[in-house]
Write a protein that binds this DNA or RNA. Structure first.
Length: 538
RNA sequence: GGCCCCUUGGUCAAGCGGUUAAGACAUCGCCCUUUCACGGCGGAGACAUGGGUUCGAUUCCCGUAGGGGUCACCA
């Protein structure tokens, strides 16, 4: 028996690879156009680092007039979590990161789910077997364990390579007999590498890296007929025309293998861009953000607490290209799409994930929103996560006024970082329970004094038609009349001469009307509340 | 352990042989027509370490330490 016959015995139904080479034609794109991909495995929710990868992939494709695709890597059926693929897609949609092609938008290079491409990988594996570049391996997991043990006691590298490859040189007839006898087997790649030699890899982010050649006869087709990641990566990215692979830098050690696979299969290899993962501090040391331990690793977390997607993306972009922050400052109103992203500006070390900084970005993002935009996003969020806030927002006309307080001017408020902050920030504008609101202002506690201030203000000075300056002047007049200073400075210069200062007066009114010592501009609040409500509250 | 990568203030980071070593977040103080928020001004705070190379090293080279990654029929 020869190798072609062996290949036929193993994959009797596989098509010729020329069929696929013909079917998936080279993409017709202009020079320099990048075809990128985000390739998650459906083992759970989308990781925040995945959002960054997807964002980079999308950005590069858009900037160069290329294509951005999403491929679901579900070759490990044991780890697959039901619905995870759909959730990941939904999550990408939530971040406006839907690709040009995916399981949701079939293109000409599909299917976009690896489990549905099994026959494709098998065709390529078959061709390798025919050429003697791959072979069936009958080693059981016990055999492999034994090899490893021997290697460890001999203090040699572990793995299936060189002299340890029991099945590599098995006579074809013997292999065929075993297969016919029903012995379980997998397909291994016959590595031509020599680890004494180094390969030079030029990474789009990390620069030149010297790595030893791969000599491991890695598994390419598992016993369930599906490919391993490595093999699927080579076949898919070749067939789908991907020419730039951005992925986490934990893959760097696999680069020699991948390059070897591309080379042996006769494919042109893509450029690689290996990005540092986001880290988290744990005690004295840092570690990767973990799906299991860290809620903030879940890309869906931000939607839950109500951080706008733009804020999450701006934060991530800032980690990717730190000059983004400067750009944003110079171009406060431009969409992120216009920012010129540059792979070369990506950091090589893993950044500590900083939620505080992200929330600061979020405050700035939200401060640029109009009241209508705040309303719309907050409303959508509340529908899903906060029934009480939703109740408040149902009164749309009034809510727009409330949300418009100190907004849209040159110095907008920056006190909302996430929609889950909103209810507490505005609730007093809607609900005011006079009976159960304690008047708490430490500087003025005498009920008689409070009554006097409130009474005099509303009987003598208050006029809802006043403009802001008049309102302000009246507050000072009131202060003066009651023995408080018109200016804070006067009081500070001569505290014994006054009962207090104008700030105390206005705070009394503020607390009386809102139940809080700290609120946005009192004049605007009174305008929004309106005379009727104000009189009810006092 | 082998291989690979990394190391500038608490954090993210500019820098790419000569700088008073930017900027942002956080922090502290002061200022701003009354609180809060915003804004302004200012303070404190860094080139892991030892050798080279050089007239001169944060920057280039080597070692050390520390950190991270990877060595599966997982991706």
């Amino acid at each position: 028996m020869n190798s072609t016959e062996l290949a036929n015995l193993i994959f009797p139904n596989a098509k010729e690879i020329s069929y696929y080479e013909e079917k998936y034609k080279t993409r017709d794109l202009s020079e320099g156009a990048l075809v990128t991909r985000y390739a998650p495995s459906p083992t759970g929710f989308n990781h925040i680092g995945g959002v960054m990868q997807a964002m980079i992939a999308q950005k590069l494709a858009k900037q160069t007039g290329g294509k951005y695709i999403v491929r679901i890597e579900d070759t490990d059926q044991k780890r697959e979590v039901e619905n995870a693929a759909e959730q990941i897609m939904q999550n990408l949609k939530d971040f406006d990161l839907l690709p040009d092609e995916s399981i949701w938008q079939e293109g000409q290079y599909g299917p976009y789910k690896q489990s549905q491409r099994a026959e494709i990988y098998q065709a390529y594996a078959k061709s390798l077997i025919e050429k003697g570049l791959a072979y069936p391996c009958f080693c059981s997991s016990e055999d492999l364990e034994q090899i490893r043990t021997n290697q460890e006691s001999a203090k040699e590298r572990t793995g299936y390579y060189g002299k340890w490859t029991k099945c590599r040189n098995m006579p074809i007839d013997m292999a065929a007999d075993k297969i016919k006898a029903g012995e379980p087997y997998i397909i291994r790649f016959k590595s031509p590498g020599n680890p004494e030699k180094k390969i030079k890899h030029k990474d789009a982010i990390k620069g030149n890296i010297d790595l030893p050649e791969n000599d491991q006869d890695i598994v390419i087709i598992k016993s369930d007929g599906l490919p391993t990641f490595h093999f699927a990566h080579a076949v898919d990215d070749h067939l789908m025309g991907v020419n730039l692979v951005n992925r986490s830098d934990e893959w760097i050690p696999s680069v020699p293998l991948h390059l070897q696979l591309f080379y042996t299969l006769g494919f042109k290899s893509p450029k690689y861009a290996h990005t540092a993962p986001m880290m988290k501090m744990e005690g004295e040391s840092r570690r990767k953000l973990s799906k299991r331990k860290d809620p903030e690793a879940n890309a869906g977390y931000y939607r839950e607490i109500g951080v706008p997607k733009e804020a999450v993306k701006e934060y991530l972009m800032n980690i990717a290209n730190s000059n983004f922050e400067m750009w944003r400052k110079q171009n406060p109103d431009k969409p992120m799409d216009e920012f010129p992203f540059d792979l070369k500006k990506m950091g090589v070390a893993g950044a500590l994930f900083d939620l505080v900084k992200m929330l600061d970005v979020a405050k700035n993002v939200i401060s640029r929103y109009s009241a209508q935009e705040v309303y719309d996003e907050a409303y959508d969020w509340a529908k899903e996560y906060d029934e009480e806030l939703l109740q408040l927002l149902e009164n749309k006309e009034y809510s727009l006024k409330v949300l418009g307080i100190e907004r849209g001017n040159a110095k907008p408020r920056k006190d909302i970082a996430k929609w889950s902050d909103l209810k507490n920030a505005i609730s007093y504008m809607y609900e005011f329970d006079k009976e159960n609101t304690h008047f708490e202002y430490q500087k003025i506690t005498d009920p008689a004094e409070i009554d006097k201030i409130v009474k005099m203000y509303f009987e003598k000075y208050y006029d809802p038609k006043d403009d802001k300056q008049t309102w302000f002047d009246k507050m000072k007049d009131l202060a003066e009349e009651l023995g408080y200073s018109r200016e804070v400075k006067e009081y500070k210069a001569n505290p014994d001469a006054y009962r207090g200062h104008v700030g105390d007066i206005s705070t009394v009114i503020r607390v009386k009307l809102t139940g809080r010592c700290q609120t946005p501009d009192l004049y605007e609040i009174m305008q929004v509340l309106g005379k009727e409500e104000i009189l009810r509250r006092i």
